[in-house]
């Protein structure tokens, strides 16, 4: 079955790039959100197989959104998207329930490999 992905990032630019990466890897991007609050709503609505989550976002951060999503659905698979210099935030996100992380700038192969690992398909 084609895996369904929710993309969360406050920049349209980043969302487009991430969507393209997933599309090229045979995933289906089913929705997008531009802040933590919207992410929680969209997650409930769409129940995606995988969610990519930016950390620094307006109003509600990716870490808080992750915490709430995982609390409501402990089986949620969340992949954090971080930038260089955010190591401590990444650790916080993992503690909040995120499964793994990728670092900007993204390389398609890396992102897809980590996504497949998180989904339990193993790297291909």
């Amino acid at each position: 079955m084609v895996k369904r992905v929710l993309v969360v990032d406050d920049a349209i630019f980043m969302r487009n790039m991430i969507k393209d990466i997933f599309a090229s890897g045979g995933f289906e991007v089913v929705g997008e959100a531009s802040n933590g609050l919207e992410a929680i709503e969209r997650y409930k609505e769409l129940k995606p197989d995988l969610t990519t989550m930016d950390i620094v976002m307006p109003f509600k951060s990716g870490i808080e959104a992750t915490r709430e999503i995982v609390k409501a659905d402990p089986r949620a698979l969340i992949l954090m998207c971080s930038a260089l210099g955010q190591e401590s935030l990444v650790m916080e996100a993992i503690e909040a329930g995120a499964m793994d992380f990728v670092v900007k700038p993204f390389r398609s192969d890396d992102v897809l490999a980590v996504a497949r690992k998180v989904l339990g398909d193993g790297p291909k």
């Binding site: 406050d10 980043m14 620094v56 976002m57 930038a83 210099g85 900007k104 700038p105």
Partner: peptide
């Protein structure tokens, strides 16, 4: 203000525009 600089950094890094990435960082 932090978020604006951070967003620019992420986008510039993705575009591989190092001069903007470094300044925004």
């Amino acid at each position: 203000i932090f978020r604006h600089a951070h967003s620019i950094k992420g986008m510039a890094a993705s575009m591989e525009f190092s001069e903007i990435t470094e300044l925004a960082h």
